[in-house]
Design a protein around this nucleic acid. Structure first.
Length: 497
DNA sequence: AGGCGGTCTTATTTGCAGAG
DNA sequence: CTCTGCAAATAAGACCGCCT
């Protein structure tokens, strides 16, 4: 039923995105282009791109916009284009041309004309056109790929080159083939490598070492081998590795991915450390200069070990001096409190990131222990989860739980408490002392949390209420009195909630 | 102390694949 | 579609070590 709800949601979104004539027109363009160019890559939903000034900085390109120009006011934050605002504030930024079109043929003619004649004379680079409806839908614009606009890309420039070798790049447990090609200049950059994604792609292309190939840059950036032109008789087959070069385990080849199945392979352990540093955004904890040498020397073998590092551990490393060491450790220890979802997301559980975990937290599994003791069925009820993802999460937590505890036990980093928003007791904190008559203390504390308040075990600074049925001048009572915390009885507490 | 050069990090883009 | 994760190229800026 969750799937049916999701499907219905998509359909209603699609129906409301375009209405009447505009919807019909855009779909018409889409279909005509698809047929004419027979290439879904060159005709797709897309975020409208950026202008790249010729000889300017950075990358990205701006598509011409039909109908209406997109709003460029600061309130419009494009998910993928924050830096666009930075660009638009620059002086001499070119005006973005717009044009109102009436027929599909007009779009096709314009595309041909701009691609073949005008493109080179513009003061900025473009790689295609975007067509969109007249209305600006801000919610839609925030999507990675807004539904209310379609891009018609220009034909990608291709160039001939030769495959010299194939390397198998290792990241975590995955082995990814990368073609090393004879260096060629393509669209302003030198291309010498191109990802081959997975073993299947090599087969599909019938690629061998020595093959002459056409190479392009998809989206102006990513080198891509489009096709094989010819393969000489003496060309060598591309042989995928069969055993892990780190732990000697037989690799699993699923065609779409080649990986080392050994959970304890040290490559995986290192990858987890790397992910932690990256996810917590710890700057200048240099991978090559600090993390890798520390791992290889055995000084760190789990995330918790990071938190026992001292300056002297780093300054003994090659090319690391006081300056960098201090900076790296400062940045590491500066992260003192992170949300549960980020904590789990940084533990490198396959297919489980921060956003997915956040859904679990929002569904009420708001502590590590609650998630750990939940069932596959419970998790799979959450939107975005089914059997597989639930199992990835639960297995991951089960395997890593001891390591997670180790990290928390360092006391250098804690998990931020989950606050329920909008509760009656939002922003208020309670401390209970003495015996309660109608309930147990733990139950009372639970009630407070459920209503959005905080339950404290002691009379802390800024505590809102001390709840007690006695007037005995205990330490808690006296402290509450002296700092002006309101002291209420159990009955008054019950009235409050 | 400051300049120079080499090395490394960071930030940026799109494509692809799998699960939901 | 959404989310996750990993590919390549490049410029700018940070850093280290060496030289003056």
């Amino acid at each position: 039923s969750a799937n049916v709800t999701r499907m219905k949601g998509y359909i209603s979104k699609l129906q409301s995105t375009f209405t009447g004539a505009v919807r019909a027109e855009i779909l018409l363009y889409h279909n005509i282009f698809k047929k004419k160019y027979n290439d879904k890559q060159n005709c797709r939903n897309t975020a409208s791109g950026l202008v790249r000034k010729k000889n300017g900085i950075g990358s990205g390109d701006l598509n011409l916009v039909f109908y209406d120009a997109i709003s460029t006011s600061d309130e419009v934050i494009f998910q993928n284009e924050i830096h666009k605002l930075k660009w638009l504030k620059q002086e001499n930024f070119p005006t973005i041309p717009t044009k109102i079109v009436k027929t599909p043929q007009e779009v096709i003619n314009l595309r041909e004309d701009i691609m073949n004649n005008k493109r080179d004379t513009l003061e900025y680079d473009i790689d295609g056109l975007v067509i969109k409806g007249k209305a600006i839908d801000l919610e839609d614009m925030k999507r990675t790929k807004p539904m209310s606009q379609i891009a018609f890309k220009f034909q990608a420039e291709v160039i001939e080159t030769k495959v010299l070798d194939v390397e198998w790049s290792i990241s975590g447990h995955n082995y990814t083939p990368v073609a090393i090609v004879e260096s060629v200049r393509l669209m302003g950059t030198t291309v010498s490598r191109a990802s081959l994604a997975n073993p299947n792609l090599i087969q599909d292309l019938r690629l061998k070492i020595g093959s002459e190939v056409f190479i392009s840059k998809r989206g102006d950036i990513i080198p891509k081998i489009e096709s094989v032109i010819s393969t000489p008789a003496e060309a060598k087959d591309i042989i995928a590795p069969t055993v892990c070069e780190v732990c000697n385990t037989n690799l699993a080849n699923e065609g779409t991915r080649l990986y080392c199945p050994n959970e304890l392979c040290s490559k995986r352990i290192y990858h987890r450390l790397r992910k932690w540093i990256k996810k917590l955004n710890i700057k200048y904890f240099s991978e090559k200069l600090i993390l890798k040498p520390l791992f290889e020397s055995g000084r760190i073998s789990a995330i918790a070990d990071l938190y026992s590092l001292k300056i002297s551990d780093l300054t003994t490393l090659d090319r690391v001096k006081e300056n960098l060491a201090q900076k790296a450790l400062n940045n590491l220890f500066a992260v003192k409190e992170i949300p549960l979802a980020k904590f789990i997301g940084a533990f490198d559980i396959e297919n489980i990131g921060e956003d997915l975990t956040q859904r679990v937290v929002k569904a009420g599994f708001d502590t590590l222990e609650k998630i750990r003791s939940s069932s596959n069925f419970q998790i799979s009820q959450i939107d975005g989860f089914a059997d597989l993802s639930s199992q990835y999460l639960l297995d991951g937590i089960e395997n890593l739980y001891p390591q997670m505890r180790d990290v928390l036990n360092t006391n250098k980093i804690t998990i931020k408490g989950v606050k329920k928003m909008g509760g009656k007791l939002e922003g208020k904190s309670f401390c209970f002392t003495g015996k309660l008559e109608t309930m147990k203390r733990a139950e009372a504390e639970q009630m407070v949390r459920e209503k959005g308040g905080e339950a404290k075990s002691g009379v802390v600074k800024d505590l809102t209420y001390l709840v007690t049925n006695s007037n005995e001048p205990t330490a808690k009572y006296k402290k509450a009195q002296s700092q002006g915390t309101k002291i209420i009885t159990e009955t008054e507490f019950l009235e409050l909630i």
